[in-house]
Design a binder for these strands. Sequence first.
DNA 1: TATTTTATGTCAATCGATTGACATATTTTT
DNA 2: AAAAATATGTCAATCGATTGACATAAAATA
Lengths: 329, 329
Amino acid sequence: MLSDKNVKLEDVAKLAGVSKTTVSRVLNHRGYLSQKTIDKVHEAIDNLNYRPNQIARQLHERKTNLVGLVFPTMNDPFFSQLETKLDSQLYKLGYKTLLGNSQNDPDREQNYLQQLLNHQIDGLIVGSHNKGLTEYNNLNLPIISIERHIADHIPVVASDNYLGGKLATQQLIDDGCKHIIHTNYPELIASTNQLRQNAYVDVMHKNNLPVTIYHIDFDSSLEDKISIIHQLFIEHPEVDGIFADNDTNANLIMQTAKKLGYKIPEDLKIVGFDGSKMVQMFLPELTTIQQSIDQMAEVAVELLEQRIEGNTEVKSVTLPVKLIKGSTA
Amino acid sequence: MLSDKNVKLEDVAKLAGVSKTTVSRVLNHRGYLSQKTIDKVHEAIDNLNYRPNQIARQLHERKTNLVGLVFPTMNDPFFSQLETKLDSQLYKLGYKTLLGNSQNDPDREQNYLQQLLNHQIDGLIVGSHNKGLTEYNNLNLPIISIERHIADHIPVVASDNYLGGKLATQQLIDDGCKHIIHTNYPELIASTNQLRQNAYVDVMHKNNLPVTIYHIDFDSSLEDKISIIHQLFIEHPEVDGIFADNDTNANLIMQTAKKLGYKIPEDLKIVGFDGSKMVQMFLPELTTIQQSIDQMAEVAVELLEQRIEGNTEVKSVTLPVKLIKGSTA
DNA sequence: TATTTTATGTCAATCGATTGACATATTTTT
DNA sequence: AAAAATATGTCAATCGATTGACATAAAATA
């Protein structure tokens, strides 16, 4: 078996009977070259199974074609769809994806970030939830954020969360619900989830309905989430509508409600948020606010590319949402 | 804002008033050093926000600490859980993850593979479904495969698929099913899915029951999958049990069956395969064969590490499965 | 005081590919 | 035949960090 790793440009040159410079010219299509030489060199490359060492090339060009992705997890319908699409879009532009899933652990996120930077990534797409990481502020690196405000100069790609919250709440009201509860994260400062909640509060107020919010931490265990949901039903047996901040929680709420004897949608109506492909597949009955997840990825990569190209005037982008009508509301 | 990208070791040396060698010694803890110098250097590093260029370091050490993952997609419960855990385990060993999701497109997989190799990855973990890619055979690179046979010398980490198929089929038989259909991929040559099917066939034969298999391509569209499932019910209205080769298909089968008026489990019993966390969450009622997905990732990373360390005697590993009893069978 | 040990510096090579400057052949075109 | 275009080579520097060889101090120990 030929060992690729140790074959270098020089070996190709030797075998083809030409100079290093000529091989480099063939590889990079520069200068004058005869067809004969080009063929000879390619033949040698094939014979030796030569592969140019990107590391050496990158060192010279000071560009790695590596983009880091920093997200809390991949094992979630929303993030897995998003990262899949990001990877796919980056691939089209010739970038490779370096993972940095932080599991929402701040230490780990910071550490990941350091490592990604050490790897000389050309850019970064961030969608992690951690608060208080100031590292991002001082980076001299193209960054795009998804659904999260990081720093003033970092463009954000986000859904029209306020509209989403409005649509969800209004749907429940139109369905005749009087006691509508909203679930969301406990810490919303930097998250665009705040807008979903704001819309809920505004619409409820406008309709003179009572506002009730339960906090479900994104990172807490399944058991803890279910326990909070149980508590919700115990403390508010009158609830007849729930607007969950994401589909995963909507699902848990549905399952818990069914166990407690609620009939959906007769006794209780539910609207989720996200509308990922996976949830559409496993839970098509869920009425939800669908984000344009794939489009978010497309736009994020476009913006990042612009930043990498040196454009400093990159603006944040808001994307449309739409209500997907299932049978739960 | 201090620009990190352009700060190099030499700048640190200059600011600290020491030589490049001394800075390098501080960074790599080599040779004799006074505390005073160490402090001075660290201070300069902090002031300049210096970060050693990994590319340069890697070029010298000929090690990148990068591991490539080649899988068909991330937007799938099984693969997303697997890749999440792989990333997490690799992280613990100091490796970063370079993504290569092929969408099961052979050209793309080959291209990805080339690019990963160009990036001088230290190792590769493969779980893609593509057949006929001979590239893997000639690579002088540590590779571990997951649930797929690639080449004789490449260790495979896989579940006890035969046992899984046996448990699933037996469960349906124990439930009194007489007309049990199995769904699986059309091309099983390299896939360990073959064993699930073999077990089904064996158990059915032993019980003198008729064998019926439908092929659902992993990569075909949702519509095509559903269409095949529809056809299944049209051609075999007598079916009373289905053993699906994965939970995603089991889900589609359930949904289609319900639409056609089947009651589950009264009229039709279903057993899936995979038992990922996400499916457990969204479809807890599904009876399924659970693979030890997290453990697969753990073992794969362990084996890869051994290969990277130079151990050429790395053996394939088979992991246990267990039947998770839901309400569908 | 003589001898180690500790602390730091200088210098150059290395990792592998790229590139600019320059030289020297061939061809091809006027 | 002269001028221009084409084809290749040599050489050295560069990208940034690492390292070995060697030199030279200063501090600690015998």
